[in-house]
Write a protein that binds this DNA or RNA. Structure first.
Lengths: 232, 232
DNA sequence: CGCTTCAGTTATAACCTCTAACTCCAGTAT
DNA sequence: ATACTGGAGTTAGAGGTTATAACTGAAGCG
């Protein structure tokens, strides 16, 4: 760590950058990413607007930084949750629970990643790399789960439905996103559906589409997580 | 229809309102809802900015109008798709296909409804009513599907997993959103999961989260739709 | 200890939403 | 038919935003 010793200038610069990001996160948490205002941040910090442009080229660069922070945080949260459990199925359940808690803790942070992309904005390659790393957590767990299922009772799950089989055949050749992961197509499919199903529930929840419906999204989420795990 | 005869003033007013909305939709389609600019619309129409405020109290009112239009269009699209099929399962498949086509035809329109809510904005009660009507299409189809399954072979689907059973018990009492629909809890659960699963795939697709992954979302979507229908 | 680099400043441009005050014409009512 | 009035559209302007340009002054560097 002592090798990261920097000049005073750079130390100060990094410190101010972090302070800016802290204020930005506060804004995102309260009013959402769309209302993020560089001017307001500067005012809160007691400096004038254009001073911020010494630290971030423009609004998009700050936004990208926030997106990457959010991705990183989500990734470590999922990995930490996975590490707490020792059986494959409980590990998947732990990741599912952690994902929802993470999303509900700061809805705007979840929406910053998975919500409406800003018009001209394109996610940086690093973001997709982190997203892939989250998927690898799921693929690891599903690999272990399917192995355990083989040794135990591989029946119960009858023949694969046609569309699922077609998806598996497709994923056998179209697996660029999991190129460095040795999982078979079925595991890729399971990880993918696990992700999309959980996102389906939690994204509607954080966007407020369940508010008027008067039921507990937690139960729906639990049922979906369970189904996705049991389906194998 | 001839009873809706209006004064010339009101005819003109309605016409201009529609023209404004047409330009707004064009903007939403190209740059997204977040970048919707009343000024730009006025410029395109050859009038000056403040003139628009004769027709819409503010930006939010125009946005609300667009949201309601989108909801209405999605609702009629789903109902039309459901009407094309004659068996319950093909009807569900038709609705699923129509939903994805509708979303992909204009991604920003889908995101306008199901994407990140704008900061201070709250959906009008009419929107939730239309959303409920979309759900009722699904509940009708699942009701018919489960009835058909009873007459045929109700086995295959073994005992309900614990979390799903818990959700069913919860929905038995928490069904405000389907108060005027006689469907049993299991049907509510099926409709709900059908919705969330399809949304999970299509929302990630329109938000561009599959772009770097190099697989065909259509196959994943088809597999998910099929699974949600087969699960009953 | 001088020089240079850079953080922060003000001024400014070009947008945005939205209000206020005014003009003027067209539809309405007598 | 004509007088009246309501409303559509105008300009001016307040207050917000992102972002650039030019300048100042101090702090770090050699």
């Amino acid at each position: 760590m002592s090798e990261t010793v920097k000049s005073p200038r750079e130390r100060y610069r990094a410190q101010v950058r972090d302070e800016i990001k802290a204020h930005a996160w506060a804004q995102v948490a309260t009013t959402g990413a769309a209302a993020l205002s560089l001017n307001a941040i500067a005012k809160q910090m007691g400096i004038s607007g254009p001073a911020l442009y010494r630290y971030f080229r423009n609004r998009d660069e700050l936004m990208t930084e926030l997106v990457l922070d959010a991705y990183r945080d989500l990734s470590t949260t999922c990995r930490a949750a996975a590490a707490t459990a020792h059986t494959p199925t409980t590990r998947l359940a732990a990741v599912a629970g952690a994902l929802r808690r993470w999303a509900l803790a700061e809805p705007h942070r979840y929406l910053l990643i998975y919500g409406t992309p800003v018009p001209g904005y394109a996610a940086p390659p690093e973001a997709t790399a982190i997203a892939a790393s989250i998927m690898s957590v799921l693929m690891d767990a599903f690999t272990a789960a399917s192995a355990a299922a083989d040794t135990a009772s591989d029946a119960a799950t009858g023949p694969l439905p046609k569309p699922a089989a077609a998806l598996d055949r497709h994923l056998a050749t179209h697996r660029q996103w999991a190129a460095d992961h040795p999982a078979p197509p079925a595991v890729l499919r399971c990880a993918l559906t696990f992700w999309t199903r959980l996102h389906g529930v939690v994204s509607l929840e954080v966007a407020g589409h369940f508010t008027g419906m008067n039921f507990d999204p937690a139960l729906l989420y639990a049922a979906e997580a369970d189904a996705a795990i049991a389906a194998r």
